[in-house]
Design a protein around this nucleic acid. Structure first.
Length: 741
DNA sequence: TATCCCATA
């Protein structure tokens, strides 16, 4: 395929970007209004150019220009390019800051950063006094941190008089987004002006398939179908590479195997428009793949060979592969959703939204016109796919976010200005959990412990366990575990070949056995320590099928957590406790104080029943050392839940009922709906007394956790939890109902 | 009875 190389070079010159002719008007628009929305498709140049225009126009006299990105790589690469264009050394006038990598200095006037970084800065300095302009980029992606920043910026800077009290000069806020939803954003920021920049994209023609209809939502029928369509494309379409979208690792490897088998039977000398397509290069792509293997994806295929990349959603926004002309879209994605019925965050496969389908199709039109083959029917599109992807803030656990808001002085977390309100139930659930972790008191006020917790970049449950271990003086057990659980999966499972997969599993089993216990958390600790004390850690990883990149980042996270803990122990009067139990139980006892919300008890055979008040039936994931383990392990805690062929719990550890006995009633003592008034901070003394007596009565009623459990088990015999579709439709219906109201 | 979306502090 001939690439328009010269054109591409010319395009990257700032003056040829669509944004250039709007330069003066754009700068004026920022001058005039405290808030401004800028919309433009990818390729309009807004991310790299606008900060430069503002810098040139003298906006950096009083403070910095800060630009947020939802992803680390984006923040770094864009900063590199802008530094180049401004002809300065990266880290001086132009810099970036992401976790573990601060490339800024006193001189830095234009600072690219992740949205999470800016949120941390807000915690330390709510009026953002260092900045003259804050630009939130890629707002249409609706990342959790960006959404919170939107609300905070509106809250703090909407009232000019109030803002003036906080700062010596006004702050300019620019919100950048793809064209969708610009009216909504403008309305959110007091009907502020919208500036539109035309983009430049090539047309992509889309076709619907006939295979996957509304009834196939639940079956993973689509793997076979994408393989068939990809082969059709290979045989009948002009030269150009193929990108296939699937949902997960095992599916992708299965599809690659099928493609390989079937492509062997193709007549490779099939003549397509004067180009002899001799073969098909099949490449899997997913996030947990080793980096060197990922790099292969970007190399152009050998002459005459067509590349076919089978990827997860990683290829939708995070990675751009050149030369893609054809998309095969399965119509599904694996997504982390907060599930009220299961009562926790669950990873599940759901249909993508229409806007996401368009995003996928767009990956074929980056360098020339392309084609997108959707394997699902028009009916599936109309009936099963929502218009937009539900923003993260409406579908994940809000526990950490609510704690952050509370610590920022936002007490009324229900009436906080969300661009899209999460369901009140989700907010109340988060409050309930914070209360259970002792992070807030019964009036919704942040406790001393809560103030300690917000300092840690971890899930609150994990933070709770870590703080427990610190107060017992055994933080060396929990710090590595917390670090390992907050990085990507460290176990490499396979590289397409089944024999090697068995090899990997054998090594991982050996590591689990080395701990002398059956406990996935202990295995993580063991991997961490074994590798750290090894002479050649990267070789050790290779030998044991461990992800070196992931483990390295776990080392950094552990160091960071250790530093935070040390700082807090020096400043605050840190709580201390003594432990008189068996030393070998220490790790598990600490885990219990953060994971008592994730307790399950063996029900029948291999089925476990969760104890969180929802009583879901779950199975131990095959990757766990508890998988297939026998009946004496009756009580377990687990780190997360995953719905694929079954509802699986992952990273599991057996516990004794006595350890959680006193904590479990706490799960049932607070009625979520009664927290509503606490959330609003409108509780009168009378209400408080009434509420507390009611709770006391309830506690008496549910004398022990055993009783609760029996009740739950009874209720759950008819309940199928793996019915992802029913839940999906239920959520959809609820959303529509709310909209109608 | 058989397997792990993507990000982020």
């Amino acid at each position: 395929m001939s690439k328009p190389t010269r054109l591409a070079v010319k395009d990257s010159e700032p003056k040829h970007l669509p944004i250039y002719q709007h330069k003066n008007k754009l700068v004026q628009a920022v001058r005039k209004s405290p808030f401004l929305i800028v919309t433009g498709e990818t390729g309009s140049g807004k991310t790299t150019q606008l900060p430069q225009y503002l810098h040139e126009a003298g906006f950096c006299k009083n403070g910095k220009i800060g630009i947020t990105q939802p992803r680390r790589v984006a923040a770094i690469t864009v900063a590199q390019r802008v530094a180049q264009e401004m002809k300065c050394t990266l880290g001086r006038e132009v810099g970036y800051q992401v976790r573990f990598d601060d490339c800024t200095s006193q001189e830095t006037a234009v600072k690219y950063m992740t949205d999470g970084c800016l949120l941390r800065e807000v915690l330390a300095d709510p009026s953002l006094s260092q900045y003259s302009v804050v630009i939130l980029d890629e707002v249409h992606e609706r990342s959790l941190n960006t959404d919170i920043l939107l609300g905070l910026l509106k809250n703090v800077f909407s009232d000019p008089a109030e803002a003036a009290k906080r700062r010596s000069f006004p702050l300019k806020v620019v919100v950048m987004s793809a064209t969708l939803e610009s009216d909504k954003l403008s309305a959110f920021f007091n009907n502020c002006p919208v500036f539109e920049i035309p983009g430049r994209v090539f047309p992509v023609t889309c076709t619907f398939g006939s295979a996957v209809g509304p009834k196939d939502v639940e079956r993973n029928f689509y793997v076979k179908e994408v393989v068939k369509v990809a082969l059709d494309v290979h045989i009948s379409e002009k030269a150009g590479d193929i990108l296939v979208f699937l949902t997960g690792q095992s599916e992708i490897e299965h599809a690659c195997d099928l493609l390989f088998e079937k492509a062997e039977n193709i007549d490779y000398r099939y003549d397509v428009q004067d180009r002899t397509v001799e073969g098909l290069l099949i490449l899997p792509l997913y996030g947990s793949m080793p980096t060197d293997q990922q790099r292969q994806i970007f190399q152009p295929p050998p002459p005459g060979i067509r590349k076919c990349v089978v990827a997860t959603n990683i290829a939708a926004t995070s990675l751009t592969i050149n030369g893609i002309k054809y998309i095969v879209d399965s119509g599904f994605v694996k997504q982390l959703n907060h599930n009220s019925r299961v009562g926790m965050d669950v990873l599940e496969v759901v249909p993508i939204s229409k806007s996401e389908a368009q995003q996928r199709a767009g990956r074929a039109g980056r360098t020339s016109a392309g084609k997108c083959f959707r394997i699902y029917t028009k009916e599936f599109w109309e009936k099963c796919m929502p218009e937009y992807t539900i923003p993260e803030i409406q579908r994940t656990s809000l526990t950490a976010v609510i704690l952050t808001l509370k610590c920022l002085g936002v007490h009324d977390v229900i009436r906080f200005p969300y661009l899209d309100c999460p369901e009140e139930r989700f907010i109340l659930e988060a409050l309930k959990q914070l209360y259970q972790f002792d992070a807030i008191d019964r009036r919704g006020k942040v406790t001393k412990l809560g103030e300690l917790m917000v300092e840690f970049p971890l899930h609150p449950g994990l933070t709770r366990a870590l703080l427990k271990s610190a107060s017992l003086g055994c933080q060396d057990l929990l710090l590595p575990v917390a670090a390992m659980l907050s990085v990507e999966n460290i176990f490499i499972r396979s590289v397409t070949w089944r024999t090697l997969e068995k090899e990997a599993a054998k090594k991982h089993r050996a590591l689990a056995e080395k701990t002398g216990s059956i406990n996935d958390f202990a295995t993580l600790l063991c991997v961490f320590n074994s590798c750290k004390s090894s002479d050649r850690p990267s070789a050790w990883c290779k030998e044991n099928w461990i992800h070196w990149r992931a483990l390295k980042s776990a080392f950094s996270v552990e160091t960071q957590l250790r530093e935070i803990l040390l700082r807090l122990q020096q400043v605050q009067d840190f709580p201390t406790e003594s432990f008189d139990g068996n030393k070998s139980e220490l790790l598990r006892r600490c885990l219990c104080s953060g994971y008592f919300t994730n307790v399950a008890r063996r029900s029948v055979g291999k089925v476990f029943c969760t104890m969180d008040g929802h009583g879901s039936m779950v199975h131990v994931h095959p990757s766990s050392s508890l998988f297939e383990q026998e009946a004496e392990l009756n009580w377990v805690i687990f780190h997360d839940v995953l719905v694929t062929s079954k509802t699986y719990i992952r990273t599991v550890c057996p516990i004794r009922y006595e350890w959680v006995k006193d904590l479990l009633p706490k799960l049932h003592e607070v009625d979520v709906y009664e927290l509503s008034s606490v959330a609003r901070q409108e509780v009168t003394e009378d209400e408080m007394v009434k509420w507390e007596s009611k709770e006391a009565a309830k506690r008496q009623q549910e004398a022990s956790a055993e009783d609760v459990m029996k009740k739950l088990e009874k209720r759950n015999t008819e309940d199928s939890v793996s019915d992802a579709r029913a839940r999906y439709l239920q959520r959809k219906q609820q959303r529509e109902q709310r909209k109608a109201l």
